[in-house]
Design a protein around this nucleic acid. Sequence first.
RNA 1: GGCCCGUUCGUCUAAGGGCUAGGACACCACCCUUUCACGGUGGUGAUACGAGUUCGAAUCUCGUACGGGCUACCA
Length: 506
Amino acid sequence: MSKRVRVRFAPSPTGGLHLGGVRTVLYNYLFAKKHGGEFIVRIEDTDQSRYIPGAEEYIFDTLKWCGLEPDESVQHGGNYGPYRQSERKESYRKYAEQLVKDGHAYYAFDTPEELEKMRHDYKTEQNPSPQYDHSIRMNMRNSLTLSPEESQQLLAAGTRYVIRIKMPEHETVSFTDMIRGEVHFETSLVDDKVLLKADGMPTYHLAVVADDYLMKISHAFRGEEWLPSAPVHILLWKYLFGLENMPQWAHLPLILGPNGKLSKRDAAKYGFPVFAMNWKDPNTGELTEGFKEKGFLPEAFINYLALLGWNDGTDQEMFSKEELVERFSMERVHSAGAKFDYEKAKWFNHEWIKKSEAGSLKSEVRNLLPGKGITDISDALLGKVIGLVKDRCTLLTDFYDQSWFFFKAPETWDLDAVKSKWNEDKKNFFLAYVEKLQSLIEWNAVALENIFKELASEKNIKPGELQLPFRIMLVGGKFGPPVFSIAEALGCDETTKRINAAIKIF
RNA sequence: GGCCCGUUCGUCUAAGGGCUAGGACACCACCCUUUCACGGUGGUGAUACGAGUUCGAAUCUCGUACGGGCUACCA
C-alpha cells in the first residue's frame, strides 16, 4: 500500500551550499535511510543565466564531506535520470502544452517591457506589487485575450512567449503538510506563474512537479520559503498526474541568522560561516568561508544542524549519524524557525573533538601543520600530542595554538611568573634534575614526576613551587597540558635542552 | 499593501488540560587543578498580550501584537 520512500534534494548550482540547504539534505537523508528508501540529488539548473561553473561539483564535494551521499544523482547514477534538469528540457514542453490544451494554462506574449509597464501602471499604495493574475490577465497580451487566429499567427511567426498557469478564480486549494497540518490557499490570490520560459526551459514550478512524478518521489521536503507557491504545485499535480500520486509535502522551518533569513552577503557580519565549505566565486574571485575550513568536524556540524528544528523528545543532544537515522521522525520536526547559534555550534564541535579518538583526528590535524611551518612530525608524537590537547580545542584550527610547543622550543618566556621567586636553590634543583634525567630508565610522565618530587623533598623545596618554573622552561608560559606529560612527549634530549636554556635566562 | 507560516529562559528546545514549567548553550559563583582547560556543584533567566472553553490551560478556540517568509521568464 505505502509507496517506496524516495526523497530528493534539488539544489540549483549557483554557489555555496548554506546551512539551511545542508539541513534539508540531512532531513532528506535521515528520512530515506530510516525508511529504507532512496535519497536522490537532482540538479535544478533550469536558469541558464545563473550558471556558475564548479557549483555542481561543490555540492557533491560538500555532501561527501558531510557523509550524506546520495543513492542516485548525476555522479552516482540511477534508473531515473537524467538527474540534471537542463538535460530533461524536452520533456517539460509537452506537459506545458498539455495544460494549455486542457485550458489550465495559456500562451503569454508580453515582453519584459510590457510586464514592467503593467507593474508600474497597476502599482498603488494599496497594491505595491501587482501580480499577473486573474484580475489583470485579461488586460495583457496572451492567448486568452487574443483570438485563436492571432495567437496562432504569433506562434507561427516565432514570437517569444511563455506558458503561464491559469489560476482558477474561486477555489480553495488545500493540502496536508507533514509539519504544519492542513494549509489552505485561495486560488484567486495566487498569480499566474510562468511554467515554461521563453527559452523553452521550465521554471521551477513545472520542473519540480514533472520531475517528482517522473522520479517517483514519495515525500518532498523543502524550505518554508516555498510554501506560498505550493498551491501552484498542488494544482499542477491535480491537472497532470493526479493528486493521489502526489508526494507528501513537508515545508521545513527556516534557519535564521541574527536578523532574519541567512544570507551569504551578511556572513562576514555574523562572525560565523554560512556555507558548509569554502566557496570561491569563479566570477568575482570572492571567497566565502565554510565550516569545514573553520575547523568543524562533519559529525559535529551535522549533529547541531539536526537539532535545529528537531529533537527526539529526550534530553540527548549528542547523536552520531547512525543514531540520527534511528531516531529521526518528521513528526518531531518543529514548525517555527530557528536562529543559528554559533556558540552552541562550537560547543558541539568541542564535544565531538573530545569524544574522538586521537588517532582519528590525526590526518585532519596533520593537514593544518605545514601552514604553520611545522613538518616532519612522527605519527606517534602527533597522536600523543592530540591526546594531550584535544580537550582544550573547540575548533580543529585550535590545535596549533594548543600544541606548537611540542614541535618547537619557546623563544620567549613569561619571566614575570618566575623571576620574583627564582633563586639559587631552585637553579640547583633543576641542574640536579637534569642530571637525574640522563640516567632515567623509563621515560614517562609518572617517573618524571616521581623523581621530581623526590629531589624536591631532598632539597627541601615544595614541589609546587618548582612546577610552574618547570612549565615555563618547557613551553614559555602558563599554559598547556600537565607539565610532566609535556616532558614525556618532548623526550629526554629536548627537555634537558629547554631546561638548560631557560636556566641561563631566569 | 496582500497572502502564508510562526510565537516557552538571550539562544536551541521539553512538557500534546492536572506537579515548584524540565534540559542544553551562553553567563555568574563555588569546588577540583600551584598553568590553562576538562570535570563537578549551584545560581540568574521563559509560556507575547487579552478574552473564552474548563473544576483546572504553556497546552483547545478567537482576537490583538510582534516576528519571519513569499509577492521574477531565480530557485
